[in-house]
Deep mutational scan, measured.
Amino acid sequence: QTVQFNGLEYHFPNPEEAEKFAKKVAKELGGEVRVKDGRWQID
């Protein structure tokens, strides 16, 4: 599972970890999490 933001990609072994990370980062950055092409993106 991949999380993308600021032009970087973070890879996680399972979707739960990816989701948790994506939501944490979005909260800290005040961004929005969305899934695109099977990847988590933070904008």
Rank of each mutant, 00 (worst) to 15 (best):
V25I: 14
F21W: 13
T2N: 04
Q1R: 11
F5S: 02
G7L: 04
Q4E: 14
F5M: 06
H11A: 06
K20A: 14
V25N: 03
G38V: 01
L8I: 13
L8C: 15
F12D: 00
Q1M: 12
L8P: 00
V3I: 04
G38T: 03
R39N: 09
N6L: 12
V35N: 09
R34P: 03
V33R: 00
A26C: 13
E32M: 08
K23C: 06
K27S: 11
I42W: 04
K27C: 15
K36Y: 08
V3L: 05
W40G: 02
V3W: 01
D43V: 15
Q4N: 10
E16K: 08
F12M: 02
F5E: 01
F5V: 14
Q41T: 15
E28Y: 10
V25F: 05
G7M: 04
Q1V: 11
E19P: 00
Q41C: 14
E19D: 04
Y10A: 03
N14F: 05
N14S: 14
R34A: 10
N14L: 05
A18H: 00
E28P: 02
T2D: 03
V33N: 03
G31V: 15
F21S: 00
E17A: 11
E28I: 09
E9M: 13
A22H: 01
K23I: 12
E28C: 15
W40E: 03
K23D: 07
Y10K: 04
R39G: 07
Y10V: 06
G31A: 13
G7C: 14
G30S: 06
K27R: 09
Y10Q: 02
V33W: 07
Y10G: 00
I42E: 03
E16Q: 10
D37H: 05
H11S: 08
A26F: 05
G38P: 02
A22N: 01
V33M: 06
E16Y: 11
K23E: 09
K23P: 00
P15R: 12
Q41F: 15
E17H: 04
A22P: 00
G38Q: 03
I42G: 02
L8A: 10
L29N: 09
V3K: 00
G7A: 04
E32F: 13
Q4D: 08
E32A: 11
N6Q: 09
A26K: 03
F5P: 00
E19V: 05
E16V: 10
K36I: 14
E19T: 03
G30E: 05
N6V: 04
N6P: 00
E32T: 15
K27W: 10
E28N: 06
R39M: 14
P13F: 08
K23A: 08
G31H: 07
V33F: 07
A22T: 03
E9R: 07
I42F: 05
E32Q: 11
E19R: 06
Q41W: 15
V3A: 02
E17S: 08
A22K: 02
T2L: 10
A18M: 02
Y10N: 00
K20M: 11
V25D: 01
V33S: 04
K27M: 13
V25S: 03
K27V: 09
E19Q: 06
H11E: 07
D37V: 00
Q4V: 15
F5A: 05
I42Q: 02
G30H: 07
V35R: 06
V33L: 11
A18G: 01
K27H: 12
H11W: 13
H11L: 08
K36W: 06
Y10D: 00
Q1C: 15
V3D: 01
E32D: 08
H11N: 08
G30M: 06
E9N: 08
Q41N: 07
F5N: 01
P15G: 08
K27E: 12
R39T: 12
Q1L: 12
L8T: 11
I42L: 05
K36R: 09
V35H: 12
Q4M: 14
T2S: 09
P15L: 07
G38Y: 01
E16M: 11
Q4A: 14
F5G: 01
E28G: 04
A18W: 02
K24F: 09
E28F: 09
A26I: 07
R39E: 07
E17C: 14
Q1W: 15
D37K: 03
F12G: 00
A18E: 00
K27P: 02
H11D: 05
G30D: 06
D37Y: 01
E9T: 14
F21L: 01
P15E: 10
W40N: 02
P15Y: 13
Y10S: 01
V3H: 01
Y10I: 09
N14W: 04
L29T: 14
D43N: 11
V25M: 12
R39A: 11
P15M: 11
Q41V: 15
K20T: 11
Q4W: 14
E32I: 14
N14E: 05
G31N: 03
Q4H: 13
E32K: 10
L29A: 06
I42P: 02
G30V: 03
I42C: 08
W40C: 06
N14H: 06
Q1H: 15
L29K: 05
G38L: 01
G30Y: 05
Q1Y: 15
A26M: 05
E16H: 09
K23N: 12
E19L: 09
E9V: 14
W40F: 07
T2G: 02
P13C: 13
P15I: 10
R34N: 11
G38S: 04
L8W: 12
K20E: 12
N14D: 09
I42Y: 04
G7H: 05
D37F: 03
L29Q: 07
E16L: 10
R34F: 15
R34G: 07
G7R: 04
K20H: 08
P15H: 09
V25H: 05
V3E: 00
G38C: 09
F21M: 01
W40A: 01
G31L: 15
K27D: 10
F12K: 00
G7D: 06
W40S: 01
I42T: 03
Q41K: 06
G38K: 02
Q1D: 10
K23Y: 14
H11G: 03
K23H: 13
P13A: 11
G31R: 07
G30N: 09
K20C: 14
E19S: 05
P15Q: 10
V25W: 12
H11C: 14
